[in-house]
Design a protein around this nucleic acid. Structure first.
Lengths: 233, 233, 233, 233
DNA sequence: CATGAATGAGCTTTCATTCAT
DNA sequence: GATGAATGAAAGCTCATTCAT
């Protein structure tokens, strides 16, 4: 950019402070809301505090989000459901083995969700779903279902290609989900109160779970992981 | 009892109505409180509703429990911490192999906690610990710590007897805990919203986890379950 | 009493414990109530605590006094209004000078009321009269008015006998009352919070006030105490 | 102001309605609170009623004062403790005799406190100090102590200048305080219930007390007012 | 657009009084 | 008579949401 730009040029190029902030508002609010929802839960988070942390007034929050529930939904969309499209695309173009795909999927979850504040949303939904049915339905529809479907497709791919043994897919999904969601939940709750000596190392924890999982899913494993739900007749 | 009991016998046996209710009150209140805490969480449970469900008035609740927090603590003692003594005793007199002891412990947890409303308490603490520090400290002290200690002793027993491989005990404890707590959490939260076709069968789920676990813990397993934290140097 | 009294004699003479206690009940309750009313005020005194301090149950209190207000009235009658008859009698038979009568009256008040817990009732009425109109009316009728009348008669006697100068009697009454009631009030309120070095010595305080008063009332005093209200026309 | 003021002038002069109310709120609330505290006492005054009398809702009150106790403290600061600075300044620059200073002090108290609603605060503290220890401590620190100190300095000035006889200062302070506080207390309590014929005229009452006091304090008085505490050895 | 003053339903806890035993 | 379990109105305080400015 030339050094001799006129005032009007500046005005055109660098948006006026107010305008720039205006565009940034929703993002700042979403970031503040994510933090606070994760810290305190949905019910215990006060709208005013979200606003304050985003550097705006209480009224402004309701200018962008018509209610606390809508704010929460926006947080979920921004941080979780928005990512499913990319994941689906990655799945469609993935070229390695299904075991690699599963490993990749889990690590992607960890990096993009589990290891970020977004994991707190999962914990939060687990605890408050009961009190906010509309939120629960929304989450079920926007997150649980797509996540389920994605994992299903991963497993189905393995089965179709003869890499995984035939299985009850739903059971398989939960078997993958369980250790991940436990990790996300624990990290954001009682894990915080535990002593310093008994801290989970998530990377190792995940590594173990993945290998155990694959050991159970792989076609020829004399696997320990063989309940009726997963085994072939 | 003989069919020819005199009136005085009846009087002795069937307590006056008021008397009977008085004795039953705390139990009725604890039962109602357990249900509601599990359904709605601590903060969202209203004292008045607990009272109503127990069939008494608001004031009566505070006759027996000096505050909502004390009520909650009583619920925890009644349903969880009260059971550790029995478990410790069972542990001390258990005569089978350590694998059997672990299996037994986990199934006992499932039957006495995991498969009852008490499991909801675990979920609840996971979500609300942050907002009620005193409750969190209480739970840590009354439940987490004793549970940890008990599991540690089980694992230590196996290691001492040469049945389990040497391991980082704390990591081992979490490895046992994870699938159980996930189960308890899921059942009482998003599990409720899931469709009817993708229901977890807890018995099978547990069976799988236990065997996987033992596979990982056993001395000679070429175990998949071998992170640094658990392996021998 | 003879040492060989039969059991039935005992029963007749020494009332059975239950019966004796029954007769003593109201007195024990009144004593407990006086203490607590003085300590905490009327509104802040809980019926249950009165009962407990009297060693009976809450229900029993309401057996003897139909409400907290009635209890309070009984306390007032027992400790204050009940004494006016004796005072009136003493006044009627008093043979000394009117100055001596006034001195005697004030010291009698101090010994029988001011220096006892009953003084707390005065303080209490000063504070809570506004909130309990019925109590205020009762107190006005049972205590203020008779006290006023009594003092009036004392002053009138002095005037009639030419010992005191002619005066506005009502103003004279207040002039006598003021330092006494201040003392009673202070002792039971902020006097309690003051440091140890600035304690009022009631005897001295009273002595000063009485002499000042008489100085002002006496016929020939070139008294400082000469407002219009008290002076002769 | 000219009669031809433009619209913008009006806008500048008459603040927006909302704005004006906002600035006025604390004052309106303090005024309403003072009235009600004086009428009913601290405990019996309901926050909602204060709000209603100030023309706002319950919530608004707590927007300005974080609790009922803080509201009360603010009332005390506004109406009493806030005046000590001015009094101390007046004392420092006073040029007349100490007798005049004392007269002036007492009349100033009467005009600025005793004859206003603020006098009710004194009565209120006398009655409720025991039930609200934190308030009592606050009042002791913010009012009693400074008041004591101020009076002490007045008396000390008289003694130092040889105008007053040597005396026990603390006793002297109480001797000045007593009739004033009685007046304040009586006016706001039983004085309200008394018949119309026996009303105290405060001005006269004060005049008498002041002269009696000076009579007792003055160096050469053959004073009636001579207890040990006040007399010279 | 942005603000923040205002609202009022809602929640925990207290306590005088009743009444079945 | 005596008991104490039960009641329920009332009071302090919070917070999502609105709306005048």
């Amino acid at each position: 950019m030339s050094t001799s730009c006129s005032i009007s040029e500046i005005a055109a190029t660098v948006p006026a402070k107010r305008e720039r902030r205006k565009d940034a508002r929703p993002g700042e609010l979403l970031a503040a809301a994510l933090e606070l929802f994760v810290e305190k839960g949905f019910a215990a988070t006060r709208a005013e505090e979200v606003a304050k942390r985003a550097g705006v007034s209480k009224g402004t929050l309701f200018l962008y989000f018509s209610s606390k529930e809508e704010l929460f939904k926006a947080v979920v969309r921004e941080n979780i459901s928005g990512k499913f499209d990319a994941w689906n695309a990655e799945f469609d173009t993935f070229e390695g083995s299904s075991a690699e795909l599963l490993r990749y999927s889990i690590h992607a979850w960890w990096e993009r969700i589990g290891n970020t504040k977004a994991a707190g949303i999962t914990k939060l939904m687990m605890s408050e779903a009961g009190n906010f049915p509309e939120l629960a339905a929304f989450y079920q529809h926007e997150v649980i279902q797509p996540g389920n479907d994605l994992l299903r497709r991963v497993l189905q791919r393995g089965v179709d290609r003869g890499e995984f043994r035939p299985m009850d897919l739903q059971y398989g999904v939960y078997t993958v989900l369980a250790p991940m969601l436990f990790l996300a939940t624990w990290k954001h709750s009682l894990g915080l109160c535990s002593g310093t000596d008994n801290i989970i190392d998530p990377e190792q924890y995940i590594a173990v779970q993945v290998e155990t999982l694959l050991n159970g899913l792989n076609r020829r494993a004399d696997a320990a992981l063989t309940p009726q739900g997963l085994s072939t007749p």
